[in-house]
């Protein structure tokens, strides 16, 4: 099953490599990983999308918790949550037909064109992983994808629940 695990950790050198190390060392999957400092600059919040059965996920959270730099770990998928991912995608727009088709989809997906060139558009699209996948598939069908880059998922629990020190 797909899981989103959020980790609150010290914003210290080496902390990230320890977390990533546990995943490779113990053979856990990483589907995506997203990390940045929080509003408190001494802390970083990391979000990992992984998959595995309940036992594997339990071990992952325990092994994360065991790291000295880690303050808290939560499996967001255990409760209701919000998740978002962003993608920048550069697609070929070589003729009028491609341009209109791309723009139509940009509207439907509430995406945004960030850069326009004679032969391509660069688009920003935000949403769930599924939405981004769908948009990319559509782009592949209507035009050519030149390149794309995704941030990986980040997420928060709904309601009053929060991951705080």
């Amino acid at each position: 099953m797909r899981r989103i695990i959020s980790v609150l950790m010290e914003n210290a050198p080496g902390a990230l490599s320890r977390i990533v190390g546990v995943f490779s060392q113990r053979g856990y999957n990483v589907d995506s990983l997203c990390v940045a400092p929080t509003e408190d600059q001494s802390l970083s919040r990391l979000t990992i999308v992984t998959h595995g059965d309940d036992r594997v996920i339990e071990q992952i959270t325990k092994q994360m918790n065991k790291l000295i730099d880690v303050l808290k770990v939560v499996d967001l998928t255990e409760g209701t949550h919000i998740e978002r991912e962003m993608m920048l995608i550069k697609v070929a727009t070589r003729n009028e037909q491609e341009r209109t088709e791309v723009m139509r989809n940009v509207d439907i997906f509430r995406a945004q064109v960030l850069d326009v060139d004679l032969t391509n558009y660069t688009i920003e699209v935000t949403g769930t992983t599924d939405k981004l996948d769908a948009f990319a598939t559509l782009m592949k069908q209507t035009s050519d994808i030149i390149e794309s880059s995704r941030t990986g998922v980040c997420g928060l629990a709904r309601g009053e629940k929060a991951l705080r020190p």
Binding site: P13, G14, S17, R18, G21, Q25, I68
Partner: peptide, 14 residues
Amino acid sequence: MVGCSRPIVKHSFL
């Protein structure tokens, strides 16, 4: 050394 020993230490400091 911090990298080499990472999987076999409880923690490390540089």
